[in-house]
Amino acid sequence: MLVAGVLVGFCAETLFRGILLRGMRADGRTEAIVAIGTSLVFGLFHLTNIITGSPVPAVLNQVLLATMTGAILYVIIPLLGLVVLVTVGIRDRHTPSPA
């Protein structure tokens, strides 16, 4: 379970902080636009939970919280790195999906 939790954080960070963030920076966007853009995309990515039958209000709440979490992680990860990834992975593994 711990490994699966860490992999969730690792995959999300690879997608959002690795690929998307670097792509936006390479296009010459300001750091503020990169922070807002990656946080919004991270939050909107959670809309996929509607497909699994989660109630829309719960999913919208999750999108809002994930967007805010993305913004916080944008600031914290460069400072704390792997410690944050492991913590987020463990939290994701033990947080129930909205139902």
Score class of each variant (00 low, 15 high):
Val63Thr: 04
Val63Phe: 04
Leu64Asn: 01
Leu64Cys: 04
Leu64Gln: 02
Leu64Ser: 03
Leu64His: 02
Leu65Phe: 10
Leu65Ile: 07
Ala66Met: 11
Thr67Lys: 03
Thr67Ser: 02
Thr67Arg: 01
Thr67Gln: 01
Met68Asn: 04
Met68Cys: 09
Met68Ala: 08
Gly70Val: 05
Gly70Ala: 04
Gly70Leu: 01
Gly70Asp: 00
Ala71Gln: 02
Ile72Asn: 05
Ile72Ser: 05
Leu73Asn: 08
Leu73Glu: 07
Tyr74Val: 00
Tyr74Gln: 02
Val75Phe: 12
Val75Pro: 04
Ile76Glu: 09
Ile76Pro: 02
Ile76His: 08
Ile76Arg: 10
Ile77Arg: 09
Pro78His: 07
Pro78Gly: 06
Pro78Thr: 04
Leu79Tyr: 08
Leu79His: 11
Leu80Val: 15
Leu80His: 12
Gly81Arg: 13
Gly81Phe: 06
Leu82Ile: 15
Leu82Lys: 14
Val83Leu: 14
Val83Trp: 14
Val84Ile: 15
Val84Lys: 00
Leu85Gly: 10
Leu85Lys: 09
Val86Glu: 06
Thr87His: 10
Val88Pro: 08
Val88Ser: 10
Gly89Lys: 09
Gly89Val: 10
Ile90His: 03
Ile90Leu: 10
Ile90Met: 09
Arg91Phe: 11
Arg91Pro: 11
Arg91Glu: 12
Arg91Leu: 14
Asp92Ser: 15
Arg93Met: 13
Arg93Tyr: 10
His94Asn: 15
His94Ile: 14
His94Lys: 14
His94Phe: 14
His94Met: 15
Thr95Ser: 08
Thr95Pro: 10
Pro96His: 05
Pro96Tyr: 00
Pro96Glu: 04
Ser97Arg: 12
Ser97Met: 13
Ser97Thr: 12
Ser97Val: 13
Pro98Ala: 05
